[in-house]
Simulated assay, not measured.
Amino acid sequence: MTLVSAAGFAEAERAAAAIDIAGVTKAYGQGENRFVALKNVSMTIRDNEFFTLLGPSGCGKTTLLRILAGFEAVTEGKVALFGQNIAGLPANKRSVNTVFQHYALFPHMTVAENVAYGLHRLKRPADEIKRTVACTLELVKMDRFVDRRPGQLSGGQQQRVALARALAPHPKVLLLDEPLSALDLKLRQAMRTELKHLQKATGITFVFVTHDQEEALSMSDRIAVMSEGQVQQVGTPTQIYEYPVNRFVASFIGDANFIDVEIEEVERGVATCRTARGLMLEADNLAGHKPGGRSTLFLRPEKVRLSSVGGFGTPGKVQTVDYLGQSTFYHVDIGEDSPVMVEARNQDNGDFAYKVGDAVSVGFGSGALRILAQ
């Protein structure tokens, strides 16, 4: 391996797809005790991509990561790494490294020795190991701590060492199993930027597992949202947030309003819909629903507009006010089964624009309402 500088690793010719996952099912146990953790999962992870597996606990994301690492075998299906079927390949034969949630550093070794460990196992020449350790520690900004042991480092510093150890052999794919979960909020936010920078600097495909929606949105090139062992949607952060395919994705990524409707008319991609209480609303009909069917409208709270009574929109009354610092959440009763959530930036003087009991008008901007595909 050739390391050209701490700014990045040497580029190599790569195929368009780093990982192909086709029809993967993973089951544990037999008969009545059989549990299916993954159900016919298929997706392609591109080369030089920051790809995130996102979902709640128990959705199967860590199981899928362990299959990619070689720690679990598939029950059915195929997994290919740059075109090579690796479903039956042992973990130590794959060009894949993993950064675990708790780092798993060797406490008796120095920082430099921890980073060099994998290179020694690969029987790399001594001079190459020395250069690689120095370059990789510089890349993660830990070159000043080469002689310290893990117990002498903060949590964030330990994470950087774990990253350096995983990056040093220059794997084709780096797997990251919730590596930020043990850090405090401010450090997590700082490390998001660092991880994205490392991915771009090294050119290595990162596969990141998290249940944190904000992490996924801020770092990822693409996201796979998972639930109950199945992939619900794969897309860019914008696609996942703005155009969720179903109610689970819409509710798991951020906050969302849902309004059950009957579609009255469709014209040029816009559907006129009637709610259970007779309110008429227009919504983008990207999924191509037909008139006469029932469906669900989706609306982000920050896309709802509040104004004083008499303004343009639907009349309502403020039920609750939740102050969040930069913004305030209002729950507004518009006569439907559930109140509408509205997120509004706070006034410059910090006062609330509205208080509980205020009569208001609720406006839905053009394109803010969308009909869910499923």
Rank of each mutant, 00 (worst) to 15 (best):
N246M: 02
G77L: 07
D143C: 01
F298N: 10
E113F: 00
F258Y: 14
V309C: 08
L369S: 04
V225H: 04
A168C: 00
Q199I: 15
F208P: 09
E32F: 11
A116M: 08
H289S: 04
F352W: 15
F329T: 07
V234I: 14
Q84I: 03
V304E: 05
Y117E: 06
K172S: 14
M280K: 05
A17W: 11
V173Y: 01
S154Q: 01
L64I: 09
S5C: 08
Q189C: 13
L167G: 15
I45E: 10
R165Q: 11
A256Q: 09
A27T: 13
I67M: 13
L175T: 12
V79C: 06
P315N: 03
F312D: 12
L286E: 05
F9I: 08
G58F: 12
Q213L: 06
D143N: 08
L372P: 00
T272Y: 06
F206R: 05
R94Q: 14
T275I: 04
A37V: 08
A190K: 15
G350A: 12
T52P: 06
A18M: 08
L54K: 00
A7S: 12
G367W: 05
D255V: 10
E264L: 12
S220F: 00
H170E: 13
R165K: 12
P315I: 01
G363N: 08
P244G: 02
G8D: 02
L369V: 05
M43G: 08
I45C: 04
V115Q: 01
T110D: 06
L89P: 12
N285G: 05
K130F: 04
F82C: 01
R46G: 14
L175P: 11
H289V: 04
C59Q: 12
A353S: 13
E302S: 02
F329Y: 11
D284P: 00
